[in-house]
């Protein structure tokens, strides 16, 4: 009797655990959003920064689009998807700092002694970053439209950009969490994050047309996830996109997302063992 019941009971428990993990991730995402809301200065900069990037670079390099290689779109139109993905990466670089705060206080220890799903602790942090990225991306598009840019790809194009930006955000958020859990200091996290993000933004086609990149930068860009996201996003916003190029790069982003999420989970396990 008990033998026949056992598998069903087990399945129920597994289902229950998945349900609990999802609920926990939602609560933890909500907690992070509340923290953001309660820090008005931080919230303001989170929202204003993407506008600044778009308007600043848009004005600074406006004439660049006169060069051959940018096609028949304005520089602002060229730049918008690039700024969306660059902002996604830069915001996500800080994702690990919440973990460091929690470790330095007793919050992480309290969470780990509670039934909170271990996966949810990572998923919650990544989901929060995804929400922030979508909001920031929509702001960039809004500012672009107000400044006179037009995106032929329409709603479908914008949705693809949001998808690519979110995947890129999750990649860097997971990396940031892994670094945070391994090095456990805000200073080290800031160092690593600064070291990576700006060079990766510049060694890509975010600001410069592919044909105009110096040879070696072009080579680096081919392996740069920021460039994958920027190219896929730009293509998707064109009037008649080459969808195979778009989904090829989105696929690469999705694969890297899985790798990074696995890495963050590994770092989390290593942290737990070291307690």
């Amino acid at each position: 009797m008990s033998a026949t019941l056992a598998p069903a009971a087990q399945a129920r428990t597994a289902g229950g655990q998945r349900g609990a993990a999802l609920r926990h991730a939602v609560y933890l995402t909500g907690r992070s959003l509340r923290i953001l809301r309660r820090e008005p200065v931080y919230l303001a900069f989170t929202l204003i920064q993407p506008m600044v990037w778009l308007l600043l670079f848009g004005a600074l390099f406006e004439r660049v689009a006169d060069l051959p290689g940018f096609g028949d779109i304005s520089y602002l139109e060229y730049l918008t998807p690039g700024v969306v993905v660059m902002t996604a990466m830069m915001s996500a670089g800080w994702a690990g700092s919440q973990f460091i705060d929690d470790m330095q206080r007793g919050v992480m220890d309290r969470n780990l002694t509670s039934p909170v799903s271990r996966g949810a602790l990572i998923t919650g942090a990544l989901a929060y970053q995804a929400v922030v990225t979508v909001v920031q991306s929509l702001i960039v598009f809004g500012v672009g439209l107000l400044a006179g840019a037009r995106y032929d790809g329409g709603v479908a194009g914008v949705l693809v950009v949001l998808l690519c930006a979110t995947l890129l955000a999750v990649i860097f958020a997971a990396l940031s969490c892994a670094v945070a859990l391994t090095l456990r200091s805000q200073e080290s996290l800031i160092g690593v994050s600064q070291f990576l993000t700006l060079p990766l933004a510049f060694m890509s086609t975010v600001m410069m047309a592919p044909a105009l990149l110096p040879g070696w930068v072009g080579t680096v860009a081919r392996y740069n996830p920021v460039d994958w996201a920027a190219r896929a996003s730009r293509e998707a916003l064109l009037g008649s996109p080459d969808w195979s190029a778009v989904f090829g790069r989105a696929g690469l982003l999705a694969a890297l997302t899985l790798v990074m999420a696995w890495l963050a989970t590994r770092a989390f396990r290593a942290y737990q063992r070291s307690v």
Binding site: R31, R34, I35, R38, E39, Q104, R105, G106, V107, D109, R110, T113, S114, P115
Partner: peptide, 20 residues
């Protein structure tokens, strides 16, 4: 897993969320 439901823990360091 069952132990975690049966216990409460106050760590040495403060563990409340200061922003809440």
């Amino acid at each position: 897993g069952r132990v975690r439901h049966a216990i409460g823990y106050v760590p040495q360091k403060p563990c409340f969320d200061p922003t809440a």
